[in-house]
């Protein structure tokens, strides 16, 4: 029962992030929302790992965190208007 509450609250938070992805007036708003959504998915995968009792969900969480960080830094450098080697 309490796990359904956790998943519902996390899904509600994810929907708020997706609202900001759709409605953000500037490109950095959408980038922030995507970054936060990736962090939420990491927590969601950890809870799924407990429910299912298997550990490959945590592998997905680690890979998602790594890719989310790389995407955020790449988009930030792109918004800054400079190359990656400066």
């Amino acid at each position: 029962m309490i796990w359904w509450m956790f998943f519902s609250i996390l899904a509600l938070s994810g929907l708020m992030c997706l609202y900001r992805v759709g409605a953000g007036p500037t490109p950095p708003d959408r980038t922030v929302a995507i970054d936060i959504f990736g962090t939420l998915v990491v927590g969601f995968c950890a809870l799924l790992g407990i429910i299912e009792g298997r550990d490959f969900f945590l592998n997905i969480a680690i890979a998602w965190a790594l890719l989310s960080f790389l995407g955020t830094v790449a988009l930030a450098k792109y918004l800054e208007g400079r190359g990656f080697d400066e």
Partner: peptide, 13 residues
């Protein structure tokens, strides 16, 4: 780290 890079990038853009 990502948030700092993003704030700097959005301020500079």
């Amino acid at each position: 780290t990502g948030a700092h890079a993003l704030a700097r990038g959005s301020h500079r853009s």
